[in-house]
Design a protein around this nucleic acid. Structure first.
Lengths: 218, 218
DNA sequence: CCAGTTTTCACCCAGTTGGGGTATAGATGC
DNA sequence: GCATCTATACCCCAACTGGGTGAAAACTGG
């Protein structure tokens, strides 16, 4: 460490100058924190990370060139990588999902106060994942069912047998295999399949499988 | 509503008497909150929920008889169900995962202070998902681990064109439709499909769709 | 007991699918 | 330049699929 042992080393990736300067001032001017790098984009990303050797990277999710999500993926793929705290102006389910999949450990809004920001970074260092309860709820929603189309009404019109057959289909079985598996005649399985297609408003096995997985019918 | 309009109605499920009484005291004795039900177990669960009509259910994750996870599942499966805030003594990855899958919207530790507890319940009501940064990190870990199977190696062997065609298939298109959509000949699309099947190790469109969705290839 | 639903099975038929070839044009790479 | 890859396109053929119709057995709830 080149800084005092208690200092948390923070690197900032942010394309907006006003925000960038504000962040730099906050971390540079607060005891216990050190701003070891301020960057406007992700070119030479590996070099910038090595040079600033941060404990925590504050990463803007939207940046020109390589965006924050791609950068997060690249940074976290290395061994001993720093923790990455994403920041965004507005919650966007898809982006949140992508950022967390990419390996970000926390998520804060740009509307957070300086105190909240410092606290969030501290929490990241001590092994936490700070995020606003609102963002946490969104993450949970994605987590609970990545595609919550929730066609409950349709699910329930499917009989037990039909769900059973749909499940087998999702697991890659063709009509003939399903028949063998359930000790049914091939024609019976086909009859079931036709009814399933009508109920799900699809016209092919591929469509049925897609609907089953997207709507969590199985 | 039988209570003042600003009051948040809370129902408590907790088998330990000391904890139970403490919680009741906290919610009964704080302005803006009303404790509308205190229960030691989940027998007659539906009745207890209907009777107490809570906005938020504070649910112990471990209880004799039906545990808090099963109870959460039952409660959230009904329409217009209350939000459920889980509480536990110690973080347990599996239990956290199960509880959130069951539909809990938040998660707090029993070591939380009364103020934190009240704040957590308030956050639930206003659409948030309160959880300690430590718990959030665990959720994220499970989330990152469970959700993105990301068979990157296999995905990347699919060419851009192949991914494009696979996406169209997932969206319910047959070979003929894909051909029209991409201004390709029917036979060309079929050639692509055959290559996709070989790469994904499947033998049908249904299998390809299942793999694409399960492994998030599209 | 009767009506309705589910489950089971069968046949017909046009169209599609999956597997196997073969081949040409363009891009990439050494 | 030559190898390789990708995208494009076509052919054959057996098998499967999806739609329709019909019908019997079993169960469900009045």
């Amino acid at each position: 460490m080149t800084t005092r042992n208690a200092d948390i080393r923070v690197a900032i990736f942010e394309d907006n100058k006003l925000v960038r300067d504000a962040y730099e001032a906050i971390f540079s001017g607060t005891n216990g924190f050190a701003c070891t790098g301020v960057f406007t984009d992700c070119t030479d990303l590996d070099f910038k990370i090595r040079k600033s050797a941060p404990d925590v990277v504050l990463m803007d999710i939207e940046m020109p060139g390589m965006d924050g999500i791609a950068a997060t993926q690249q940074i976290t793929s290395a061994a001993g990588a720093p923790s990455i705290l994403m920041q965004t102006v507005f919650e966007d389910d898809e982006k949140i999902f992508a950022a967390l999949c990419a390996g970000a450990v926390g998520y804060i809004l740009k509307t957070s106060s300086p105190v909240q920001l410092l606290q969030a970074v501290s929490e990241v260092v001590s092994g936490g994942s700070p995020m606003s309860p609102q963002v946490a709820r969104r993450v949970l929603k994605l987590f609970q069912h990545h595609a919550p189309h929730a066609t409950v009404s349709d699910t329930e019109t499917l009989s037990e047998r039909e769900k059973e057959i749909l499940t087998l289909m999702v697991n890659g079985n063709a009509a003939r295999q399903i028949a063998e598996h359930l000790f049914l005649s091939y024609e019976t399985v086909r009859t079931h399949l036709k009814k399933i297609y009508r109920k799900l408003h699809v016209v092919s096995s591929a469509g049925a499988v897609a609907k089953a997985l997207k709507d969590r019918l199985v």
